[in-house]
């Protein structure tokens, strides 16, 4: 895994800090809410580590460009006389 360094350590540290912050609330939540909390944290932590390790992760332009750019080229081509 490439890219391990201060950024990744910092990302993990931030997550640990937030977990410490939420610890007091965890006891009052239902099982489903706790499960959602940990699942959401797992997803975002995995995403953060993947980004820091320079792995290929989905991005919004990566998911949308191939679908909508042809439409943009066809329909949103700038009028040649717009620049005066």
């Amino acid at each position: 895994m490439r890219g391990t360094g201060p950024d990744m350590i910092g990302a993990v540290a931030v997550f640990v800090l937030f977990w410490v912050w939420e610890r007091r609330n965890l006891a009052g939540w239902s099982t489903g809410e706790r499960a959602a909390f940990w699942a959401a944290w797992a997803v975002t932590l995995a995403w953060s580590i993947a980004v820091e390790a320079h792995l290929r992760v989905p991005t919004l332009p990566g998911m949308t460009d191939h679908l909508f750019l042809p439409l943009a080229h066809a329909l949103l081509r700038q009028h040649p006389d717009v620049y005066w």
Binding site: F15, F18, W29, G32, A40, V43, T44, T59, P61
Partner: peptide, 24 residues
């Protein structure tokens, strides 16, 4: 199907930050 949205605020905010910093 959760009763409260607050358990999701911190991880969702973190995910928003990651998306804002890495998508472009």
């Amino acid at each position: 199907g959760l009763r409260d949205y607050r358990p999701l605020t911190l991880p969702v905010a973190a995910a928003v930050a990651i998306g804002a910093c890495t998508w472009f």
